[in-house]
Design a binder for these strands. Structure first.
Lengths: 144, 144
DNA sequence: CTGTATCCTTAGGGATACTG
DNA sequence: CAGTATCCCTAAGGATACAG
């Protein structure tokens, strides 16, 4: 499943080529905010992604350099996916998206407190989340 | 062509429901940055949008309250589309997207100067563009 | 657990013709 | 000019079964 060829050099178009579909940003969201890292964890997205779609998007994300796939040395059958710096740089976009939705979606689940913090100290929060993402707390062995 | 039903209350999902496809943000881009307002002007997007897709997305954008359709009183056959406040609030998202692409796309057409200005004075630029959008310069009659 | 493989259905989208 | 209406094809995506 190869990338369609670029139709313009517009930066908006470039971005949409990377994540302008219904699922990619939801995967990024789960990696970024929900601490999900393995295939099975990502499968649990509340929106119900299909196995083939998840596999396909993970390949694309890796090809695009937004995600890297790492193997646990101790658990040869378990991989984990992690955002690269390029992926982490999607954070400001995500934050703006969340703010926009919080403003216009009456049903949004973004907590008032989170959005208020966002608005007030976006820069600091970005740095904070960024470092948390770069060096995530080492996790115990995956639960069976 | 009705909206698929919401699968979650996640703000990211809400946003993707509004513009998580290949074309919607390109239309917003043309309304926002390129001064395009009529159907025919929007058809000239460099990426080559089809007439049926453009018509469909404009309906959706209007349903979602992101765009309003106005008729020229003098030119009964010509409409113009304009961003609503909700649509204008997409500006910060667009700016972050442009910055991200400018950083990672070697072919991007975003000018260095524009991106540098963005980075340095995003807040001021946002206000400036915003007011330019709310009260756009009144234009001459559309060219034949 | 981490995916592949298949099957099948629908939605997205290109091309083109046509209408008020 | 501003769209509709078709036609037709491909990609996207759901469901489920299977494999290393």
């Amino acid at each position: 499943m190869r990338h369609r060829q670029r139709k313009s050099d517009c930066p908006v178009h470039f971005a949409l080529d990377a994540f302008g579909d219904a699922w990619t940003l939801l995967i990024v969201r789960d990696l970024m905010f929900k601490g999900r890292a393995t295939y099975t964890e990502l499968l649990r997205a509340e929106e119900g992604i299909a196995t083939n779609i998840l596999a396909d998007r993970l390949v694309r994300l890796e090809e695009d350099g937004i995600v890297v796939k790492e193997r646990y040395s101790e658990h040869p059958n378990t991989s984990r996916y992690r955002l690269t710096p390029k992926g982490i740089d999607l954070l400001p976009i995500m934050l703006e998206i969340i703010q926009w939705s919080a403003k216009y979606d009456p049903r949004t689940a973004a907590s008032r407190e989170f959005v208020t913090r966002l608005r007030a100290e976006k820069a600091r929060l970005t740095t904070e989340l960024r470092s948390a993402l770069v060096a995530p707390p080492e996790r115990e062995r995956p639960r069976p």
